[in-house]
Design a binder for these strands. Sequence first.
DNA 1: ATCGTTGTCGATAACGTTTTCGACACAACC
DNA 2: GGTTGTGTCGAAAACGTTATCGACAACGAT
Lengths: 333, 333
Amino acid sequence: MQASGRVTIGDVARTAGVSVATVSKVINDRYGVAPETSARVHEVIADLGYESSIVARSLRSRRTNVIGILVAEFEPFSTELLKGISEAVESTGYELLAYSGGLRRDDRVGWEQRYLSRLAGTLIDGAIIVTPTVVNPRNSIPVVAVDPHRGPSGPPTVDSDNLAGARAATEHLVSLGHTRVGFLGGRPDLESARLREQGYRDALADAGIRVDEDLVLVGGYRPDLADTPAHELLRLPERPTAIFAANDLSAIRTIEVARELGLRVPEDLSVVGFDNVPESALTVPPLTTVSQPIHQMGAEALRMVVDLIQGNPRDPHVRLPTELVVRGTTRAL
Amino acid sequence: MQASGRVTIGDVARTAGVSVATVSKVINDRYGVAPETSARVHEVIADLGYESSIVARSLRSRRTNVIGILVAEFEPFSTELLKGISEAVESTGYELLAYSGGLRRDDRVGWEQRYLSRLAGTLIDGAIIVTPTVVNPRNSIPVVAVDPHRGPSGPPTVDSDNLAGARAATEHLVSLGHTRVGFLGGRPDLESARLREQGYRDALADAGIRVDEDLVLVGGYRPDLADTPAHELLRLPERPTAIFAANDLSAIRTIEVARELGLRVPEDLSVVGFDNVPESALTVPPLTTVSQPIHQMGAEALRMVVDLIQGNPRDPHVRLPTELVVRGTTRAL
DNA sequence: ATCGTTGTCGATAACGTTTTCGACACAACC
DNA sequence: GGTTGTGTCGAAAACGTTATCGACAACGAT
């Protein structure tokens, strides 16, 4: 009978000869419906292939069993995170909804609040926001941020030890004899980018190497935003012999730029990345990088948001260790 | 004033001193509202940080500008696809919503229809379903499937040339002198798995090698489902000297199993995968595999579903080429 | 017989939005 | 001064669901 495709609860009710209220009770296992009635309704539901609309359901009752993952874009980091989250969700009974608006180049700021407003209070019970700039603590639903971590008073956060990782990467280059080490930065509004730069500076300072500010450029964690600074670094009169890029995508782009300029990696230029996304192993030679346990970070974020939803008390900050992975793009000077 | 977190259109209306209808018109640029009123409402919207709820909006009007990507699980293939889709969506004005229910081990069948019923007609304008078993053509919204392709009469589909790819993989092994080549199959309900097995058989037949049915086992595209058949193959009295696994995840698991059994790859066993997901480069040595242009497949799927939504006439079947990528896990006998 | 209890069911009001349509004021026309 | 337009607005219905609460019947206990 269903007029236009969709089978509604009304269709089920009509077919089964009961009211929509009763059908709703059957679906949600509410008390107060006779066994035979329930059986009949179940039968009709199976017959018609009815599935309740998430949308209508969530509009009415503030509970959907869906956790939202809000990302600006599906790039390697956020999809790795997604894999970790997906593995961890299996046993929880929650469903996953990863959302990404079609962002224009210019409104890449403030998307977090916008997405949250559009989905929260209705579609999702909790959210994991990936690399948000600002996250408003006074939200209706629990929110966990991945990346920012501005001290113990900040919002619930999962991140990794960016400072130690960047330090290790830079120390690795220094130990190979590099003294002119360039830094291609990340998104300036992110704490992780700040910490990675800090680790770079700390390591150089410890080694007694003065930081040449010409060698410290700002990128944005995206290949297209790495292009200009990479060119700039590699065209310097006194070219750096090594570059530490703030994430793998930038490092990969740096290698490409180096190739375009006729430089060999690692013979003429050593490159280190950060993240250890699977793509980092695809370059030739494979990229030396700092590994973040991204899957584990995703799993932690999921556990945290579930705990917050269910009201379980817990430490709202998790920081996981990083580790240097030496592969093929670094070499002694 | 907002009582419980969420700012609704009602709050905006009250604050601006107009009706909700007027606010709605302002938001949607409908005709019939005075410029000054519009300006005032816009101001209030900015002040209150109002964002219309996707849920309520989509419940009422059958148009959301959101495209759903329905997956059983966020594993490497579907997330690669997601990246391709995400790149292609930028210019279209659509938003992306990737959905994955928390599937239990046993209800991995029929999830496509279930997800579709829950989201379609309401939340999303069109859907891309990744490796569905059945896809009902009589749906309310346009649906593009990635993977199945049962002839020109099937539903709109994007896939790759599985047959040629599997053929190339097997021929590669044969050309290296392998005659006992095992096949670790994929999800039996998928056309791609069928075709990959067919390509394997064809190549062996062409080479004049009889197919030993003991060497053809069924897996399921997942590491856990590859475990048993991998063990089985490698414990055979007459062990195969090479294994062609129907996807990279299975191939990677096969390598691990081989290691556990004390076999060296590629010295004692050559392994070829299928897909060329980034993870395939992470193994040591990196995996020889058949490359599918997954990003491009995602982009094609997106273009197709957008065309279908907008009613543009187009060929509902796209098949992209595959290519053998020889890396480190294969060696001459 | 009456009363409370228990079990079953359905009307109905929300949830936040869009859309339709009628109300109203005002200007312009004959 | 009536009639017709034109511009602006709001009341109300609708979307598909859940939650509340009252109606009703059957039944056992007084």
